[in-house]
Computed example of a mutant assay.
Amino acid sequence: MTTDRFEVTRHIAAPASAIFDVLRSPQGHVSIDSSGMLQSAEGAPVGEAGDVFVVHMDREALGDLPMGRYDVTVVITRYERDVVLEWTISGTIQPPIRHLYGYRLEPNETGTLVTSYYDWSQIDDKYREAGVFPVIPEAGLRATLGILARTVENGSFAF
């Protein structure tokens, strides 16, 4: 692991298919977000690499940049049903930043081992020099996994 990537893992007592259903849903992303930035989403659940959906954001939740409300397009870069979901974003800042977010799922006898990662190793130097990466701290990934666990273990997510 490099300093340009975080990975956190948590066991969730639910089948990979139930977890993946939340992760492939635009509203699922909003429901499990621990940062407070994701406000709402539009689009259908994704089904393959290249699929997209829109998320309405509010950067004021982090209190670090005065970006206010804006939209990003989530672009799925890797998709393997019940195994891996990875994406990048395109939006207000151009050219795209090229940071990646993702989940890997490993089923076991008692549920699923879920790894969440955030990788900013491919960002352009002009973004790196801005000193705002990582945008999401490692603790944010852990908190999101906690919300994901609560959501699927309680069966509280509905499409």
Rank of each mutant, 00 (worst) to 15 (best):
M1F: 09
T3L: 08
D4P: 00
R5A: 09
R5S: 11
R10T: 05
P15V: 04
P15R: 07
F20W: 09
D21Y: 02
L23V: 03
L23A: 06
R24D: 03
R24A: 02
S25H: 15
Q27C: 02
Q27K: 14
S34K: 01
S35K: 10
G36M: 10
M37C: 12
L38K: 11
Q39A: 10
Q39H: 03
Q39V: 15
Q39R: 13
S40F: 03
S40A: 14
A41P: 13
A41E: 13
E42D: 15
E42Y: 11
E42L: 13
A44P: 00
A44M: 12
A44V: 09
E48A: 15
E48M: 08
D51V: 03
V54L: 06
V55A: 11
M57G: 03
E60D: 14
E60S: 15
E60N: 12
D64P: 00
D64F: 08
D64Q: 12
L65K: 10
P66K: 12
P66L: 07
M67D: 12
M67N: 05
G68W: 11
R69L: 06
Y70W: 15
T73H: 04
V74N: 02
V75E: 09
Y79M: 03
Y79W: 07
Y79G: 02
V83I: 12
L85Y: 10
W87R: 07
G91R: 03
I93H: 10
I93S: 11
P95E: 05
P95M: 01
P96M: 06
R98I: 07
R98D: 15
R98V: 12
H99E: 15
H99F: 08
L100P: 00
L100A: 12
G102I: 05
Y103C: 03
R104P: 00
E106C: 04
N108W: 02
G111Q: 11
G111P: 08
T112Q: 07
L113R: 14
V114M: 07
V114K: 07
Y118K: 02
S121G: 13
Q122T: 11
I123Q: 03
D125I: 09
K126D: 14
Y127W: 04
Y127C: 00
E129R: 11
E129H: 08
A130W: 13
G131C: 04
F133R: 02
P134Y: 06
I136L: 12
P137N: 13
E138D: 07
G140Y: 08
L141E: 05
L141C: 07
A143L: 14
L145K: 01
G146D: 14
G146C: 05
I147C: 01
I147Q: 10
A149C: 06
A149F: 01
A149P: 00
T151W: 01
V152H: 09
V152L: 08
E153G: 11
E153T: 14
N154L: 09
G155E: 01
G155R: 02
F157W: 14
F157I: 05
F157T: 05
